[in-house]
Design a protein around this nucleic acid. Structure first.
Length: 132
RNA sequence: GGAGUGGGCCAGGCGGUCGCUGCUGGGAUGGUCGAAGAUCAUCCCAGUGGAGGAAAGUCCGGGCUCCGCAGGACACGGUGGUGGAUAACGUCCACCAUCCGCGAGGAUCGGGAAAGUGCCACAGAAAACACACCGCCGAUGGAGGAACCGUGUUUCCUCACAGGUAAGGGUGAAAUGGUGCGGUAAGAGCGCACCGCGUUGCUGGUGACAGCGAUGGCAGGGUAAACCCCACCGGGAGCAAGACCGAGCAGGAGGGAGGAACUGUCCGUUCCGCCUGACCUCCGGGUAGGUCGCGUCGAGGUGGCGAGCAAUCGUCACCCCAGAGAAAUGACCGCUCACGACAUAACCCGGCUUAUCGGCCCACUCCCCUU
RNA sequence: GGCCCCAUCGUCUAGCCCGGCCCAGGACAUUGGAUUUUCAGUCCAAGAACAGGGGUUCAAAUCCCCUUGGGGUCA
C-alpha cells in the first residue's frame, strides 16, 4: 500500500454540499503558503478540494497552482492518513514551490487531525458520528 | 553587402521514473435479471488518443435549442464606393476614387449637405441669408466754384446728393473659384489663356468610373462617429438554451381507525393519531442530485486534379483527430539548443480585434560594391 | 460559460443624452491665513481629477472603436 501514489477521482472533494460542510466546521490552520479547512470524512478515505481565487492571476497560473497542490498531496498522502476532508487554499503572495506545499500540507494536517480528535473522547470517528 | 515591403510556417527537442483522463480489449469483486449470458458500479493490466495560434476579449456572423409569429405599416438597431465569394457577416478577394511613399507597397465608418432642421465658442464688418458696415469710384446725372480770343452740348477743381462697385477690410479651422494678361471712373468671368467646377454628347467598362469633345462664366462653407434622407439587412433569448429521470419537503384525490418502535412470535410498554385525518395507494408540478445535449461524420482534415486574376468552388483518394465536469497535459532527473513569450478548449463553426520570446522560408523594391 | 452595467480631485458626486462659455463645478476632508488668551466654530485662500490608447471634428470629459480595471445577474 505504501508504494501506491495514485490519486483517483474518489479522493477528490466534488460536491457543493461537501464544501459547505467543511467550511461550516470552521476548523482551519494556515502558514505563509497554505490555508486548510478540515473536517472528518463520512467515508473512509481522505478527500481534498482546491479553492484558488482569481487574485492568483489568469487561468494558466491558477491551474498550475492546483496541479502543484494535487501533486503535493499525491506524494505525501501516506504521511497524512485517511478519514479527513480537506480544502486547500493557497496564499496569494506566497510563490511557493512543490516542496513548500508538501511540508506545509503535512505539518498543517497533523495539527488539524489532533484538533479534530481532541474534544471529548479519544475515538474521533465515534465523536463525529455522535455529532452527526 | 545594406535598408525595406508583402505573405506563409513553427511555437523547444530526446530519454527515464511517478501520476491524471477518454476509448478499445482482457480480467477481478459486488449488485440486478430464472440459468447460459447480458447489464451496471468499483478496481487492475495492456494498447491507443489527449489544448491554441491566438483556446483570450466577447466585437460581429451562422448552425443548434426553446419561446413567439396571418399579412402589412411604423418604430428601433445595424451596414454604407463597385463587382464578386460565402451558410452568413461589420469578413475575404478583385477593381475604382482620394491621400501617403523614390519604389515594392500602404491607409481610408469611402452614399446624400444644389430634400429639410440644428450647431459653428473666441475673434471678425459678416459664419451662411444676402445684404448691411468700413472702404473704393463718382465715368453718368446733380450741386457749388474757377478759367477764357472763345460764354459753350467747353475745360478744370470741389462735394459725396443720387448712383456704381465687390478689388481690399487686423480675424478665423473655414469668408461667394485660383493665377496671369487685358479692361475700367473704380471694379467685377466683364473678356481671354491655363487649372478647378457644373451640364451634356461620344467611346470603353457588368459597374464604381475613366478618356476625349462640346458647352455654361460659375451653381457655391463645414458638420450626417448631430437629427435626418436614401438603399439594403435584422423576431426574442441563449447549452446556466433545452430534453429525460428524480430523493426530500409541501400540495391534490381516494381509502382510512389504527400505525410505528422495543423483538422472530404473543403479551406488555412507549410514541404518533381517531374527521383540525396517524397510516396506505394514486396524481401532477418539480428542488437537491443524476443522465443526455457533448464530439464517429463536421460549412471536418490531408493530398492530387480541374475552373477562376483572386477570395472561393467542383471532383477524386485517404483519414477519424481532446471531450473534462471543484474540471485531465503535471512533478522530478539527465542531455541538448536559438535558454523557452503570450496564454488553458467547456455546445460547435466562419471572421475581427488584442497579447506575444524568438526562429525559418518565399516573392518583390531601393541604394552601394565586384565581375 | 453566457448576458448586462460602470469608471471624473483623497472620498461622495454635477457636467455627458443635445461637443465650445470646462486648463472641469459643489460638498466633506487636507494645508495656510484671519478671528480667539487657547481650542472648537466661523470667514478667506490654496493644492488636488475626466481609467489608458486611437479615430471623427476647427474643437472631445461628452461622439465612435480598442484595451485595462471594477461590479451585477443567470444553476
Amino acid at each position: 500500500m505504501s508504494d501506491d501514489f495514485s490519486f483517483p477521482k474518489a479522493r477528490h472533494l466534488r460536491h457543493a454540499a461537501d464544501f459547505d460542510r467543511v467550511y461550516s466546521r470552521k476548523c482551519r490552520a494556515g502558514d505563509q503558503h497554505l490555508l486548510i479547512f478540515a473536517d472528518l470524512s463520512p467515508v473512509e478515505t481522505t478527500r481534498i478540494g482546491l479553492s484558488v481565487s482569481k487574485k492568483h492571476g489568469n487561468a494558466v497560473k491558477r491551474v498550475r497552482i492546483k496541479r502543484l497542490l494535487r501533486e503535493a498531496y499525491r506524494l505525501r498522502q501516506h504521511d497524512i492518513g485517511e478519514g479527513l476532508d480537506l480544502i486547500l487554499i493557497p496564499r496569494v503572495a506566497s510563490g511557493g514551490g512543490l516542496r513548500d506545499y508538501q511540508s506545509s500540507l503535512v505539518r498543517l494536517t497533523h495539527k488539524l487531525r489532533k484538533r479534530l480528535s481532541s474534544p471529548q473522547t479519544d475515538s474521533s470517528v465515534t465523536t463525529a458520528e455522535q455529532q452527526r
